[in-house]
């Protein structure tokens, strides 16, 4: 197997140049998909026979929740990569992705609370699904705080990587919380192996919105990683040239 890509990915300079090409188109593609998905969901998707129009919150709630988990999974993997191989890019990735993941978790929690009020009669309950997503949000905040408060960069990298890996245990808890415990939250509406629990006119815009969230997050993460690379590699000649010549 050819491992060149792995070594390239580990090189900040190579990644920076790659991201310069892709970050902007990926971001705008995400924005476009998100707009199409949300407008389709808000205006054209049919009314739900049980919830009426309130269910339209789903077009941001589910994608944000999926992204909050996906981002965390990627943090955990990056944490492992750092702890095992000390790869330079891993802490750059963790530091850049954590605020994005935190924003996704915040969107999932807030949209869920506002959806809960008219449908369940309450903004919040301390049940398994809601609590485990709150824990996810707190984990993100913890990682951000570690990165921002520890002055020693090596220590900050190490600590953030360890928390990222330890927090992985929360992901199966979030996923299966709706099956393991009694909860107000409904089980997954989507799965790779089963048919969606809603008609195509409803799930297609949801899928487009989800794809939009993925691309938007990827674009933002690449932008943030670029800034972090410049900062960390400031002693390299190529960074100096880049900053002084074209202002990036």
């Amino acid at each position: 197997m050819n491992w060149v890509w792995f070594h390239k990915l580990g090189s900040p300079k190579w990644f920076f140049q790659w991201a310069s090409k892709w970050s902007t188109p990926v971001f705008y593609l995400g924005l476009l998909c998100l707009l199409v998905g949300v407008i389709w969901g808000l205006v054209f998707a049919p009314t739900d026979y049980q919830q009426g129009e309130t269910y339209r919150i789903i077009y941001v709630h589910v994608p944000a929740a999926v992204l909050a988990e996906s981002c965390y999974l990627s943090l955990g993997v990056a944490g492992l990569v750092y702890l095992v191989w000390q790869m330079k890019m891993a802490p750059i990735f963790i530091k850049s992705m954590a605020p994005v993941g935190a924003a996704m978790a915040a969107i999932a929690l807030i949209s869920g609370a506002i959806w809960g009020k008219p449908t369940w009669g309450t903004w919040w309950v301390w049940d398994a699904r809601l609590t485990s997503v709150l824990v996810l949000f707190i984990l993100y905040m913890g990682i951000i705080a570690l990165q921002n408060t520890l002055e020693d960069v090596a220590l900050a990298n190490q600590a953030a990587a360890i928390v990222s890996v330890l927090g992985l245990i929360n992901l199966p808890i979030i996923k299966y919380s709706v099956n393991w415990w009694n909860t107000l939250h409904q089980p997954a509406s989507f799965g790779l192996t089963k048919k969606p629990a809603m008609p195509m006119e409803m799930w297609l815009p949801l899928l487009i919105s989800l794809v939009g969230f993925y691309f938007l997050v990827a674009g933002l993460a690449m932008w943030r990683m670029q800034s972090e690379i410049l900062l960390r590699e400031r002693r390299s000649q190529w960074v100096k040239e880049k900053v002084m010549n074209d202002g990036v």
């Binding site: 808000l42 339209r56 919150i57 941001v60 969107i107 949209s111």
Partner: peptide
Amino acid sequence: AFVWSTYGLV
């Protein structure tokens, strides 16, 4: 109010 405040906050 619920739908629009959600989208506004997002």
